[in-house]
Design a protein around this nucleic acid. Structure first.
Lengths: 174, 174
DNA sequence: CTCCATTATCTTGACGTCGAGATAAATCGA
DNA sequence: TCGATTTATCTCGACGTCAAGATAATGGAG
């Protein structure tokens, strides 16, 4: 036997309300884009919960993973980090300060460019980020459990096509 | 003739980097969920730009549209507004204060519940939100122009399935 | 009818982000 | 080589959000 499940989400209700109030407008873009925004908001809450058990904040994770992904020697410039995390330079300076104070990264002058700085993951930082990342993946897998493999792939492919224009002509925030 | 276009986005690069660094982990969840997060971030920037020409902030738009969608008499409680916008109650109080100061909404006691308050859109607020919304829809349609109608529908349907668990068991923020 | 858990909103302080501008080094053209 | 422009990072003040807790009214159990 099957149980009846809700087949509507908040965006369906939102779109229906708009069609009622503004039948003159075509609100179909919301079907995709409002869902992206709302889902992202929910995901952010999930992430926060996942990291809480590792004594880690989302912003810390974002920076540390960028360094972790870079591979040996786990070192990037602040500029590269802000492009990877989509935050402004003031924010990144602040984040690096706090991560350095916590001993998770170290800052050193760039030997090739005296304007520049390099930020490197410490062994402690590496340990922390690896543990948190494994946990995050576990939880994210559960969120996607409702979709078959091929559906996840289709979804990823469609999202990629929306993302490419942004990622190509990247005028990053300063 | 055809031009070669980039077929990769940042997430492809991010996933490739993880597979290099952590071949022991299955990072496929990122293919969907990182794209959702990053796309949402880009969309937020677009929204900000769209509203700038209407002297409006994103947060104002979020509250005013919730009231606009409610239909006559364009009135909701703060509690309903915070559930619609996924912010906490302290944030909503602050937002209503500022919107009221700007003359875009008015607050009045709920005649049926002396604990409660009702927030109503003013004619000025209605005018502002209608103009901004039309503009936003125009811009969002362009962002989706790369996808065929049926692809947009497929994308919306897949996103809905991820969203339903969140929107069903809604433990709202207080 | 009273008590108490619940609901609705607001208050407050801490905190992270943004945006504009400052500083300094590198780069390019004349 | 000099000056102007660009690039890289940091500083700082304004601001919005969150989380926890305060206040007050409601509604159901006994």
């Amino acid at each position: 036997m099957t149980f009846s499940r809700p087949v509507e989400d908040e965006v369906d209700r939102l779109v229906a309300a708009w069609r009622q109030e503004r039948p003159d407008l075509d609100v179909t873009p919301l079907e995709v884009l409002s869902r992206v925004s709302r889902l992202s908001r929910h995901l952010e809450r999930e992430r926060r919960a996942a990291f809480a058990s590792h004594d880690m904040e989302s912003w810390e994770f974002d920076v540390l993973t960028a360094l972790r992904r870079a591979g040996e020697p786990y070192e990037l410039s602040p500029g590269a980090l802000l492009r990877a995390t989509l935050v402004t330079s003031g924010t990144m300076t602040n984040r690096i300060d706090r991560l350095a104070a916590a001993g998770l990264v170290v800052r050193r002058p760039d030997p090739e460019d005296r304007r520049g700085v390099l930020v490197r993951l410490t062994p402690a930082g590496m340990h922390r980020v690896d543990a948190a990342f494994a946990d995050l993946l576990r939880r994210e897998r559960e969120l996607l459990a409702g979709l078959e493999q091929h559906e996840q792939q289709a979804l990823a492919a469609l999202l990629r096509r929306l993302l490419i224009p942004f990622d190509a002509s990247d005028a990053p925030a300063h």
